[in-house]
Structures are given as C-alpha cells and as structure tokens.
Design a protein around this nucleic acid. Sequence first.
DNA 1: CTAGAGTGTGGAACCGCTCCCAATGAAGGA
DNA 2: TCCTTCATTGGGAGCGGTTCCACACTCTAG
Lengths: 352, 352
Amino acid sequence: MKDFHGTKVTLEEVAQAAGVSRATASRVLTSDPRVSLDARRAVERAASKLGYVPNQAGRALATGRSDAVALVVFEPTTLLFGDPFFPRLIRGLGDVLTSRDMQLILLAPQTASDADRVERYVAAGHVDGALLVSLPSAHPLPARLASRGIPVVIGGRPTEADRFNHVDVDNVSGSAHAVAHLVAGGRRTIATVTGRKDVPAGQDRLRGYQEGLKAAGLPPDDALIEAGDFTRDGGARAMRFLLVKRPQLDAVFVASDLMAVGVLEALHQAGRRVPEDVAVVGYDDDPMAIGLQPPLSSVRQPIEEMGREMARLLLDAVHSPDRPPRKVLLTTRLEVRFSSAPVVAKPTGEAV
Amino acid sequence: MKDFHGTKVTLEEVAQAAGVSRATASRVLTSDPRVSLDARRAVERAASKLGYVPNQAGRALATGRSDAVALVVFEPTTLLFGDPFFPRLIRGLGDVLTSRDMQLILLAPQTASDADRVERYVAAGHVDGALLVSLPSAHPLPARLASRGIPVVIGGRPTEADRFNHVDVDNVSGSAHAVAHLVAGGRRTIATVTGRKDVPAGQDRLRGYQEGLKAAGLPPDDALIEAGDFTRDGGARAMRFLLVKRPQLDAVFVASDLMAVGVLEALHQAGRRVPEDVAVVGYDDDPMAIGLQPPLSSVRQPIEEMGREMARLLLDAVHSPDRPPRKVLLTTRLEVRFSSAPVVAKPTGEAV
DNA sequence: CTAGAGTGTGGAACCGCTCCCAATGAAGGA
DNA sequence: TCCTTCATTGGGAGCGGTTCCACACTCTAG
C-alpha cells in the first residue's frame, strides 16, 4: 500500500509537509501539550503519510536518554535458553517496561572479554540502565557501572548487598520451609542437590536446607549434600552420587526443578519409588512440575513479580539518580504435590 | 582503582587532555591511519586514563550506522526459551557478528502491536538490518522493512522466496531421507507428527514425509498424519491420537526432537517398545537426543552454519544495499541411532 | 632554489532531534 | 484604549561524534 521508497524521512520534511516549524512538529511527536489542535492534526497527518519514524540517534543525542534498558544475564547461552526462569522474568520485566515504552535488550556475556564489552555497551549510552542477574559473587561489573553513574538493579543477592539496588527472593526461608515440610511428612534422612555454589541463590538455598534441618533437630551430614549445576544432567548425576553415599536417604530437596527432573530419572533408574521410598521437593515451580511423574512439589518463586519489581526500581533510579539504593525481598510459597506425600504407616506394622 | 566520578567524558575532553584537536582524537579512535605516532599515543593514553567510551548516539548520528543487527523471532517467549534451536542459531550468528564487532539484539514480538513496534524500532535506526526467523507465512514485516530500505535476511523459507535474502535448510529432502531410512529398516506403516502448519519448516517436513512415502511406493494415509506444535506435550498428545487411529503403525517420523520426547513418553505409556515395535526418527538432532531412552535417531540441521550464513548475508546487504537478493540452501544429515534400528526377522519365523 | 607531492592537523559543517528563549497575536482587565 | 497575561510558534543553540576541506609543513625532483 504505502511505499516509502527506501528514503529515510526526517522531522524537517514532516514539518515542511505540515506547514509548521521543526520545533512544533517535534512538540507534537513528543506529546507536548502546548500545540494548537490544527497544528497537531496537520503534523500527525503528514507524519503518517510519510511513514515517519523518529531517528533514535538524533533523539538520544538530544535527550541524553535511550529509552532502553539492558538485561545482563551471566549464564552460558545453553542454560539461558534451557532455564524456564528467564521467560518468566522477562515477562515480568516486559509488563512494566512496555507500559513505559521502554525496550529490553538482552545481553549474555559468555567470557570476561564479553563482560568488558557489556560495560562499554552500557557506558556508550545504548541503554539508560542495567538489570543484572545470575551475577557471580564479587563480579566487578556493578561497581564499574555505578562508578560511571549508570543506574543498576541486581536480581538476587549481590555480594555487597547495601551498595546496589536489588530484588531478591527469600531463598533461605523458602528452602527451610521445604525441609520443614519433608520433616512433617515423616522424613528423617533428607539429602539435597544444590545449585552452583558460585551463585548466591545456590548458596542461600543450601543455607536454608541446613537451617531447616537444624530447626527440626536433625543432624547435619555432609554426605547428604551434593552439588548440581542447575542442569538436568547435573541433577541426575548428583542423585546417583547421593544414592551411593547414603542409600538409606528418604527425601531430597533439589535446588531447581530442572535438576529435579534429572533426580527423578536417577531415582527411577535406581528402582526407588517416589514418594513411597523417597520424597522429592524441587525449586522454581516450573510449569512442567505438574506434568512430571509423579507431580513435583516445588517452592514457587514470584519470578514475574521479581521482574516487575526490578523494572520499577530501575526506572526509579533512571528518573532520580541520587536516591539511595533500595532492597526488595520477595517471599516464596510451597506448592505441595504428590512427590512429597507423607510416609504412611505400613499395614504390616513395620513402623519407622 | 579508577573512578570516573559518574561524569560522561566526551571526545572533546580526551582531545584536550591529549593536546590535539577533536578531529585528530576522532581519527585515532576510528583507526584512521593518517595520524602521527606521537598524536596517536597521546590520545590513547588520555582516552584510557579518562575511561572514555564513545557515545553511541553521537557516532550513529554522524555515521548513519549503529553497528548492531536485530534478530527477530516470531515465537512465544516460552517456546523461544524452550527450543534448543535458538542457542545454536545465536552461536552461529555470534561467530560472525562479534568478529565484526557488531551487536546482536534479540526481539521477540508476541502480538501484532509488538510487530509494529519492531518495525518502528528497526526503522528508527537502532539496528542496521534485521534477521527474521520463525516468520509466519505471508507476514507483512519483511516487505515493510524492505520498502524502508532496510536490509533483511530471512531464516527459513519465506512466502515470496525470491524477493528476500534467505537461508534455508532443505527440510523436504531431510524428511524424505528420514522416511527412506525407516523404509530401509523394514517399516511399512509410517506415521508422522508434524510441526505447526503455519510455519514453512512444518509444511516442508510434512511434504518431505509425503515424498518419502511416495518414493518408497507406500500408500498415503491421512490418518497417519497428526499435527503437533513443536512442544513436548504437543508431541505426546499427537502420538496418543495416532495410536488410537492407527494402532498398527510401526514407525513415526517426528518433526522436532522436543516433540519426539513427548512421542517417546506416549509410546512408553502405551506399552510400545522402541525400536522393536515402533521406530522413531526426530528432527533437529538436539544434544539431548543422544541421552534419550533409547538414543534418538534424528535429522541434523546445520543450524550454526545457518546462523553464520545469515549473518554474512546480512552484513553483505548492509554493505552493498543494491545487490539482488540471494538464497542459500543448506543440506541436512541423518544421525542414525538406536531408536530406528531395523526390524529383525523373528526367530520363530513369523516373517513380515 | 623552487614547484609539486605528500603528511598531519585543525576548523567547521553536518547528522536529526529536543528544548530554551524570544516573539507574535489574541484575550482579558483596568 | 492600553497594558498584562497567556497560548502558540519559530529561530537557533546545542547533544557528541565523523569527515570534508584547506592549510602548514616537510620532503623530493627538476
């Protein structure tokens, strides 16, 4: 229908076509109220007829803003695309960002030089601020960005918790609750497959597990702790180790649902029934958790809410740069399903 | 160590610190050879001391380029992050793009208004060109972008194949080969779980299946065709339908590995042994195909290569906009594993 | 010794947009 | 009727780079 014949049309041309000055045309397009109805209509008509789209570079140069924020994910690409955490997070971010007409730009630095590139990218003004997730402990990036005056919000618990805006899920209490639930179901030898130890969420979930045991008066046992890496295969591998080290275990708390899939497979292969022999609780409440065999109990994190909160915090920081850093802590909820059903007293009377 | 005290440093300041003009400083930073060694060194020192990063908006405005390209994925976010296709594609794109210092920007329009937003985003000069994948048939976006003179490369087969640069995998012959392989293994009642019918890849794989049957002289049977949607659950559902409609089937060609996972589950639940009772061939050769029970035969697409080729085509188009559209067709390879092992003549002599 | 050909360099003109500021004219009040 | 006030407008100065162009200078060759 319309053909813009490949030429970039500028504000000047729109103004000319509408018979007004460039300044007035600009006002119309930035929704400045001080424009007469006539002028407004003329400009709008001209703009749509010419297929005008404001040039980003020009606008950014004049305003000093880019109307975009970066989501910087420190994960190998394969994990990024495997982990259901990210679509949920992005949905939450999107809720807030699109309502303010802001673009989300995804950056996934894989190497140290990539991380430098991210710093330059952000410092070059491509974006107005950065959202950082899966940040390894003590990574220099947040401080670097902050020293350049770039607003930053961290998802998860940063190393220096008070220096930066951050939104975290209460991983410790979420995990402790999961353990308490297993204890309440009659389990006594509770193992855990942890996440990566270099990620705060992994550390916190382990701590919650330990606190849960302690609260229940159960003895700690390092052989019941096996490190996973947030992958399905890693979960299966960890479970196999646990079964070798502590064959008598009767429950496992797994630090992510993806790993829990591997755990269930490993248990199945080892001939253990879930939940009769071993109860399993996962973490994340991935949609697939319901579809697993048996349906997986899981700690539900408010990830969409986390995204929304991160976006809000960042937009606030962009808007008023001198506000001191804020911290938001979100609570989890345990979704109880069949994989952690309580032990039943056996008919034969062989009590536990 | 270094603290840039939150102020943006400009080229002017670098030039001043180095005792040269802005022009000379700019030459150094754009690797223009016509600069004396002294000046070059002075500018480089000043730049690194001040932590200078060129402002993107200023540069883009002056050069008319942004040194970034968009990857536009027409998929629901959940699929985008579930499908292992994308990390591989992105790796391939990255190979070429990072070597030319170009940024990749991921856009995943979910709605029609998102698609309009993508058009504006690209037209605003955020990027120098666009890579389009999973494009629904007859989507107006490529033509819209082309009419604005924006270089475009399509991954997969576009509706009007000759108007646009595109890189495609030969889905038809790949699928036909898979069927030929099943026939060679002694299978005679070969069903298929298709992909989404509105995606060219889905259409082509179905066509390849049909051609494969025809080439083998097997009769077509619509009841052996069941639509999936490229998800695991969709695959399981489709398989269940097929088992009801044609219980005697002895092979299934599945248009993606993710669906094949569901297919294997459904077969297992129905008590069919793979490959003894039913042979299965998937598509994509997802890394997990090897780990499945049994290891899954699969048509391997050269996805990384597709990404590289797409990036090359786009960069060429950015560089020389008047070149006529080109087409690249990549070939597949069948990875034969245990899930499609041939039927063996039974010891009892009950020949086929 | 001088014209001609290179080198490096700085001044200044853009790139497209926003926004300050001054100017205009109409409306309202004294 | 004249002066303020207010709404609307256009001129023009940037924003931070790149690059054209002219200039100064050095170095050869005639």
